[in-house]
């Protein structure tokens, strides 16, 4: 994917993030991700039913990378079962951390495949993955 396309996907997800805004619904589990190494601060809420991610929403104040990465991650994970979702997150983390990864499952998230070139942005890109993982791990038997 060329850099201009990557950039426009990131910007589109930053300007018009998917599922941004929290709702009041007891079926969702919520986690706050206050990035300890930077100033991003997002809340994530997930509705899991029958081992499947029915919905994820988020809100907060964060940089362009954190916000867009959350938006993209949500789109990739909704509808997946827990195991597949954790696999996707693991591949995503591998990509960010420059380890071997399975790019077939990453969809649009592949736009961050060169974020390692900006080490100060890695934590931003990982923020949503860390938050979602926190909740999903409670569902792993």
């Amino acid at each position: 994917m060329d850099n201009n396309l990557k950039r426009s996907i990131i910007l589109e997800n930053y300007s018009n993030p998917f599922n941004k805004g929290l709702i009041d619904d007891p079926n969702y589990e919520k986690v706050n991700m206050n990035n300890e190494s930077c100033i991003d601060n997002i809340d994530i809420m997930i509705n899991i039913d029958n081992n499947t991610i029915k919905d994820i929403r988020f809100d907060g104040e964060a940089c362009a990378i954190s916000t867009s990465a959350t938006s993209i991650m949500l789109k990739e994970l909704i509808g997946k079962n827990i195991k597949d979702a954790l696999y996707i997150i693991e591949q995503y983390e591998n990509m960010i951390e420059e380890r071997k990864y399975d790019d077939a499952v990453l969809g649009e998230a592949i736009v961050y495949n060169e974020i390692y070139k900006q080490p100060n942005r890695k934590k931003c890109a990982l923020l949503p993955a860390n938050g979602i993982k926190k909740i999903l791990k409670n569902y792993v038997i």
């Binding site: 100033i39 991003d40 940089c63 362009a64 900006q118 942005r121």
Partner: peptide
């Protein structure tokens, strides 16, 4: 967002704090 500005400035060797 201030952090995006700081990271942009960093690309030009300018050190400022965001947050």
């Amino acid at each position: 967002f201030s952090q995006d500005t700081a990271i942009y400035l960093n690309k030009h060797k300018i050190c400022v704090r965001a947050g």
